[in-house]
């Protein structure tokens, strides 16, 4: 059994038995070897369910929104991406830091459940070590810049308008409007999504390419400066739409236009589209 898993169970058991938290969120084994879905443990005798292996892909932080007014504290196992997600939720006023005990895990990357190679979202990870934590398991590693994660975006930018349009039309033609991308996303924390307010007319319920595009683009723009690059949207998409390419395009432009910004690395610096500078680039004169 791996050292992280032993430590996880130990820490969870302690926190629960001391009453510091009344539940922990980690991962457990699913039916198949390549499935490690999230686990919710409230009983210290059940900590043996917790596991740590290369398929712990699902983010844990978004689950904090399920019952925002619950009384007890939650012990949350958090990898680098989960820690940024927690900052995201704190900054967006969704959760209170004092209600969470963050058990950081220094993550070395997960495997894709189909290809068994390192998962795409982990290949592009810049902060494998949690940026915020109360307890830490494992040896921290420094953040890596990974400018190569913008490569696909840069290549697509070079293409002709027609080609770009055909590419995205083909992608959104596949969309089945399951909203898994939205529901898994820690930046998608609106109490009611515009996509659910269809009587208002933001978005039609029709399943066709045009409406799918309106949904996808609006969602991408809405999280533009708040995306923490966890890559969960692209991972959960059942039809494989490269949603991170849209997010990365926005992140890349925002960095070029308004300076270096990494969402969720801290919970203080306001997202770039929520502030301004008098010296911003002028293109509209």
């Amino acid at each position: 059994m791996n050292a992280i898993q032993i430590k996880m169970r130990e820490v969870a058991g302690q926190l629960l038995s001391l009453g510091e938290v009344d539940r922990v969120i980690g991962w457990e084994k699913g039916r198949f070897a390549h499935q490690s879905p999230p686990a919710f443990i409230t009983d210290e005798t059940k900590v043996e369910r917790l596991i740590w292996d290369e398929y712990c892909l699902t983010g844990t932080a978004k689950y904090l929104l399920d019952d925002p007014y619950r009384a007890g504290k939650t012990g949350l196992f958090a990898r680098g991406c989960d820690a940024r997600a927690i900052n995201r939720l704190i900054q967006d006023g969704q959760v209170k830091r004092e209600n969470i005990v963050i058990i950081g895990i220094c993550c070395t990357g997960m495997s894709d459940s189909v290809s068994r190679q390192m998962a795409a979202k982990c290949c592009d990870c810049t902060h494998p070590t949690p940026v915020v934590y109360d307890l830490m398991i494992g040896e921290p590693v420094k953040p890596v810049a990974k400018p190569e994660r913008f490569k696909a975006v840069a290549e697509l930018e070079q293409k002709a308008a027609q080609e770009k349009s055909e590419y995205w039309t083909r992608q959104f033609a596949k969309c089945i409007r399951c909203y898994a991308c939205r529901n898994i996303c820690p930046a998608c924390n609106c109490r009611e999504c515009f996509a659910d307010q269809y009587r208002v007319g933001w978005l039609g319920k029709q399943h066709h390419t045009a409406e799918n595009q309106v949904f996808g683009l609006t969602r991408a723009y809405h999280i533009a400066d708040r995306c923490i690059e966890c890559g969960e949207c692209a991972r959960v998409c059942p039809v494989g739409i490269p949603l991170m390419e849209l997010n990365r395009k926005l992140i890349k432009d925002i960095q070029q236009l308004f300076g270096d910004y990494h969402a969720g690395v801290d919970s203080e610096t306001a997202p770039p589209l929520g502030r301004y500078s008098l010296d911003d680039m002028e293109e509209f004169m």
Binding site: F40, I176, R177, A180, N183, K205, Q206, V236, P238
Partner: peptide, 25 residues
Amino acid sequence: SRKCIGCGTCTYLCPTCHCFDMDIQ
């Protein structure tokens, strides 16, 4: 249901799910 994220993947990939909505455009 605790881990369920409330998306529609299961229902839209299911061969028998048949719920629908009606609207006008």
